[in-house]
Computed example of a mutant assay.
Amino acid sequence: MRDNDLLGSRKRAVRAMVEAAFRKESAPSAGHIVDSVYPEPMQIREYFSGKDWWVLTLKGLYDDYVGDPSACLTFMTSLGMKYYLPAYLLLAVENYYEGDVLTLELSSRMRTYVREDDMYGLSALNDEQKKAVAAAMRFIWQEYGDEEAEEALEILGQCWGKKFSC
């Protein structure tokens, strides 16, 4: 029982940190989420249009989105990525195993998102947001033993500075 209480407490702490860092601001317009005319990006644009990041759920992404929900961030503009990233972080922290590829692969994708800053622009996150990203990755590494989350933390440290690493 105590382990579950501690785990729940740690999840709530990460959630509070992410929510405080990313705040509940209105979703960007559809054209600012995805800027492409290709079919998969257009599906992403249609699904996410008008949706606030904090209302996204695993059930919604798997039941209502017609494509691969784990790939959505990859096709977004840097503004769309920065806006919806907190949802993906919280889904991974709170539903790691239930989320299948969406949550299990987030750490691996984070390595790419941070390394390829010219495409994804995550270096533009403020320090509070970067700390929240690092806290989520640290939780995923420590709680679920996700070695790719540990690697993502190392890359965060290299790209964003040591205060964001392991």
Rank of each mutant, 00 (worst) to 15 (best):
P86C: 03
P86T: 11
A87W: 02
Y88W: 09
Y88I: 13
L89D: 03
L89K: 03
L89M: 15
L89C: 15
L90M: 05
L90G: 00
L91A: 10
L91P: 07
A92W: 08
V93T: 12
E94K: 04
Y96S: 14
Y96L: 08
Y96M: 12
Y96W: 14
Y97E: 07
Y97S: 13
Y97A: 15
E98I: 12
E98K: 15
E98P: 13
E98A: 14
E98C: 13
D100L: 12
D100Q: 12
V101C: 08
V101Q: 06
V101F: 09
L102F: 03
L102I: 11
L102W: 00
T103S: 00
T103N: 03
L104W: 12
L104M: 09
E105D: 09
E105L: 14
L106P: 07
L106A: 15
S107A: 05
S108E: 02
S108R: 10
S108C: 04
R109Y: 13
R109N: 12
R109Q: 04
R109K: 06
M110P: 09
R111V: 12
R111H: 10
T112Y: 08
T112D: 08
Y113L: 13
Y113P: 07
V114C: 15
V114T: 14
R115L: 14
R115C: 07
E116N: 10
E116A: 11
E116K: 08
E116L: 06
E116R: 08
D117L: 02
D118M: 12
D118H: 09
M119F: 09
M119S: 13
M119I: 06
Y120A: 01
Y120S: 04
G121F: 11
G121Y: 04
L122S: 05
L122I: 13
L122A: 01
L122V: 05
L122N: 05
S123H: 00
S123N: 01
S123R: 09
S123Y: 00
A124T: 11
L125G: 01
L125I: 06
L125R: 01
L125Y: 07
L125W: 03
N126F: 10
N126C: 13
D127W: 10
D127H: 01
D127N: 09
E128W: 01
E128K: 15
E128C: 07
Q129E: 11
K130S: 13
K131M: 02
K131G: 07
A132V: 01
V133H: 00
V133M: 07
A134L: 06
A134H: 06
A134W: 01
A135V: 03
A135K: 03
A135Q: 02
A135P: 07
A136I: 08
A136R: 13
A136N: 01
M137I: 13
M137W: 08
M137C: 06
R138V: 03
R138L: 05
R138C: 10
F139G: 04
I140G: 02
W141S: 14
Q142E: 11
Q142G: 12
E143S: 05
E143N: 15
Y144V: 07
Y144R: 00
Y144D: 04
G145N: 10
D146N: 04
E147R: 12
E148K: 14
E148Q: 15
A149T: 02
A149I: 02
A149D: 10
